[in-house]
Write a protein that binds this DNA or RNA. Sequence first.
DNA 1: AGTGTATCCTGCAGGC
DNA 2: TGCCTGCAGGATACAC
Length: 280
Amino acid sequence: MPELPEVETVVRQLAQALPGHRIEGVEVLFPDLLAEPAGDFQRGLKSSLVQSLDRRGKNILLCFAQGHRLVVNLGMTGQLLFFPAKGTAGPAPPSEPTHPAIRFMLSGRATLVYADSRRFGSLRIFSPSDWIKESARLGPEPLGTSLSSGDFYQRLARSRSPLRSWLLDQTKIAGIGNIYASEALFRAEIHPKRQACSLDPDEAETLLEAIREVLQDAIRARGTTLRDYRTATGDEGSFGPSLQAYGCDGRPCPRCNTSIERIVFGNRSAFFCPNCQRTP
DNA sequence: AGTGTATCCTGCAGGC
DNA sequence: TGCCTGCAGGATACAC
């Protein structure tokens, strides 16, 4: 599921709901999601006061007034759902998830539930200094203003990887997954197997703009729900019908009518138009 | 450095 | 209906 637009959607919603709440208790149903023993995790969060929410790549950050933070990676099927106190006015709460894994009991009788059917997600507590180190492993934020197309070109120039693989590598650029890698390359009309270092500066700029456009379009739609993804309020993302390449094999290219193709490399599917995105 | 493979795990679609 | 296979939005570790 969850790539940058989906994670950004969850973070924006939680930023409206969580700050000011204190974690009063943590129930661990599946300790295998945690990087540390459940008892340490529970003690590390007890009485923590949520100050703000943030996102780094595909990671959700709950930043506490005490300085530490809880970093949640949703993996493939993770959901982070907010349940307001019962009886609160407003929209209906999410329906109960089928695979609850971690429950956070919050002050004011609200609950935050991490659910994850495949349990590929992870939840980990970081001190401020440890998080700085961890965050430094990740590449730049594609929507960040500090990434210029010149920087982007320079980074691409250092790698011989196929572009689709390069875009999925979180240490190269953070937040892009398999859906938006295919969508961005489709919009930029660049073949997924082109080597990163083969792009000229103009192509790099085109690709960066395509990445930014598709991510922002998807954020506006609150992400793509293929199956499992839900926003923090339990809703589905509505970007699915706007996908032009991902999962569209056999359908006509919206630009030229050529049939979209699926190829597999790096153990994952890539979707592209063989006419618009010429073979390298 | 890059690629292919395997691993964690569950659920679903499709073929028979 | 049931069984089997393959496939899935992610991340990582390994051998070559």
